[in-house]
Design a protein around this nucleic acid. Structure first.
Length: 438
RNA sequence: CCGGACGUGGCGCAGCCUGGUAGCGCGCGAGUUUUGGGUACUUGAGGCCGCAGGUUCAAAUCCUGCCGUCCGGACCA
C-alpha cells in the first residue's frame, strides 16, 4: 500500500480520551477510531491486524478438527427463553425489538444457538464428536467500557463449541483445545499463560483462562517461568492418543499458575524464587467444559449406542480477537510506538523513501515495493525524514527499509529491525530475503 | 450503578472566576527554505464554544435541565 494514497491517519499527539498505552497507540497509529463508548471502527491497518489474528486462530482451530461456521449477531429471544437465560442474563444483554415487536437480542455469546443448530442436525452418537467455531462480533452492554478495545462493548471473538458423547471424550477434546490455544498464542508472538479458572456452580477442574502479562491487566497473576519457556509448536503430542494427551495435560497444569483470586501462597512459596513470575494479566482466552448444561436445558439429545437418548457433553472455548489486538500492544511497545510481532503486523515492512523525487531513490523504492505490494507499506510522502521515521516507529512495522540517496547509489538500503532497533546496510536482495523470510 | 472530572476548528489546550460576540500550539492549503529522526519563516482556510431553556441591553463565560465522553470503584459466563 502506498502511504500517500492510504487511509492511515496517524496522530502526533495523544487524544485526551485515551489513557492506557494500547488505546493511545491504536488511535495514534491510525488503527481504530471510536464511534461511541466502547464501540470502534477498524481502519485499514487495524483491520489487517484483526484479520491476521483471526487467520492464525482459524488455522489452529482447523488443525484440531474444528469446523468454521458463521452465526448471526442478532438472535431471537425465544432461543434464550428455552435455556432460561433470557431472564437470567442481566442488562448486559442488548435487547432489541423488530418492527413486529418481536424480541431480538444482539448476541453476547452463542451457546443456545449452536446447541439448537447441533440438535437440529445431529441425531446419532455416531456423528460425535463435533466441534464448531465462528469468529463473529458480539455485544455486551458493559456498564463502564474502558481501556479501548480491551474492554469495549462490541468485540470480535472466536468461540468454539464442542459436543462429545461422554465425559472422557469431552476431556480429550478439552485437552486438544488447550494445546491449540497454546500454539495459537505462541504463533501470535505473545505468551499467554493458562491458569486454572473458577468453574462456578458447575464445578470440576476443566476451566482455564489464558492471560497475557501486561501492567494494565485486570487480574494479578503468579506463575512458574516453566510455562513460558516451553515451545508448544514443537510439541510432539499425538492428539488422537488419550494417554499422550494425559501426559501433555499434566505437563501444562503441573507448574504453578494462578490469578490473584485463586492464589495459593503456600504452593507459590514452593516455586524456586528465580522461576517466579508475577504481575498483572489480561485475559485473552478461556476454555470451559460445562457438561450437559445446555443440552439438558434445551433438551437436545442424540441416540446413544443402546438406542436411548443421550445428552451430549459440551464445552466452549473463546478467544478475544479484538481484545488481543490491544493486549498484544500492551505487551509489546516502547516510547516511540507499537512493536508488532511479525505474525500480526499489518505490514511486514515500511519502505521509507527519504528523498521522494530523487530518481535513484524512487526507482529503488518502486522496485522493492513491486515485489510485494501487500506486505509492504511504501512511504512515498514528501514529508521530512524525521516525520517518516517517527510514523514508522509509531506504526510498529517489524522492519523498516530505509532508502536514501547516500546508499541508494550503491544499490544498498538501511534495514532496521523495529524490535531491537538494530540497523545495518545491506543490498536490496538481502533486505528482501530477510524481510520476507518466514 | 456509586464517586470524580471534562465537553471551545481535525488533535492538544487557553479564555469562563470578574458577561461585551473567540485565541494559542500542532495538523491542513499556498509559497520560500530545509533535506537522514516530527526544519524555519511568510501567508491562508477552518469554530451555530455539546444541546435545550432561563437571567441580561448583551452569554463560551452566570443559572437549570438534558446529552455525550473520560477516570476510579463495583461489575466483567
Amino acid at each position: 500500500m502506498r502511504l500517500s494514497r492510504s487511509f492511515l491517519p496517524t496522530l502526533k499527539e495523544n487524544p485526551a480520551e485515551a489513557q492506557i498505552v494500547s488505546h493511545r497507540l491504536m488511535l495514534r497509529a491510525g488503527l481504530i477510531r471510536q464511534t461511541a463508548s466502547g464501540i470502534y471502527a477498524w481502519l485499514p491497518a487495524g483491520l489487517k491486524v484483526l484479520r491476521n489474528i483471526s487467520q492464525i486462530v482459524r488455522e489452529e482451530q482447523d488443525r484440531i478438527g474444528a469446523q468454521e461456521v458463521l452465526m448471526p449477531t442478532l438472535q431471537s429471544a425465544d432461543l434464550w427463553k428455552r435455556s432460561g437465560r433470557y431472564d437470567a442474563y442481566g442488562p448486559e444483554m442488548l435487547r432489541i425489538q423488530d418492527r413486529h415487536k418481536r424480541e431480538l437480542l444482539y448476541g453476547p455469546t452463542n451457546e443456545e444457538m449452536i446447541t439448537d443448530l447441533f440438535g437440529q442436525a445431529v441425531k446419532s452418537y455416531k456423528d460425535l464428536p463435533q466441534m464448531l467455531y465462528h469468529i463473529q462480533w458480539k455485544f455486551r452492554d458493559e456498564v463502564r467500557p474502558r481501556f479501548g478495545v480491551m474492554r469495549g462493548r462490541e468485540f470480535l471473538m472466536k468461540d468454539a463449541y464442542s459436543f462429545d458423547l461422554d465425559y472422557d471424550s469431552a476431556v480429550a477434546t478439552y485437552r486438544r483445545m488447550l494445546l491449540a490455544y497454546l500454539r495459537t498464542f505462541q504463533r501470535l508472538g505473545v505468551r499467554a499463560v493458562p491458569m486454572r479458572a473458577d468453574t462456578g456452580p458447575i464445578g470440576g477442574e476443566l476451566s482455564h483462562e489464558f492471560l497475557i502479562l501486561a501492567p494494565t491487566g485486570e487480574s494479578g497473576v503468579f506463575y512458574d517461568a516453566a510455562l513460558e519457556e516451553q515451545d508448544w509448536l514443537d510439541e510432539p503430542v499425538n492428539v488422537e492418543d488419550p494417554k499422550a494427551l494425559d501426559v501433555f495435560y499434566k505437563r501444562v497444569t503441573t507448574p504453578y499458575a494462578a490469578t490473584d483470586e485463586m492464589h495459593d501462597t503456600a504452593a507459590w512459596d514452593a516455586v524456586p524464587e528465580d522461576r517466579r513470575r508475577e504481575g498483572r494479566g489480561v485475559e485473552v482466552g478461556h476454555i470451559f467444559h460445562f457438561g450437559t448444561k445446555y443440552t439438558q436445558s434445551m433438551d437436545v439429545t442424540v441416540s446413544g449406542p443402546e438406542g436411548t437418548p443421550v445428552y451430549p457433553e459440551m464445552g466452549s472455548y473463546g478467544i478475544g480477537v479484538s481484545r488481543l489486538a490491544g493486549a498484544i500492544i500492551e505487551a509489546s511497545h516502547d516510547d516511540a510506538g507499537i512493536i508488532w510481532p511479525d505474525a500480526v503486523a499489518p505490514f511486514r515492512a515500511v519502505i521509507v523513501n527519504l528523498k521522494v523525487g530523487d530518481e535513484t531513490c524512487d526507482a529503488m523504492c518502486e522496485q522493492i515495493y513491486n515485489t510485494n505490494t501487500e506486505a509492504f507499506l511504501y512511504d512515498d510522502r514528501t514529508d521530512r525524514a524525521g516525520a517518516k521515521f517517527a510514523d514508522a516507529d509509531l506504526m510498529g512495522h517489524p522492519w523498516q527499509i530505509v532508502v536514501g540517496p547516500r546508499s541508494a547509489k550503491e544499490g544498498r538500503v538501511e534495514l532496521k529491525r523495529r524490535a531491537t532497533g538494530e540497523r545495518k546496510e545491506v543490498s536490496v536482495e538481502d533486505a528482501l530475503a530477510l524481510v520476507l523470510a518466514d
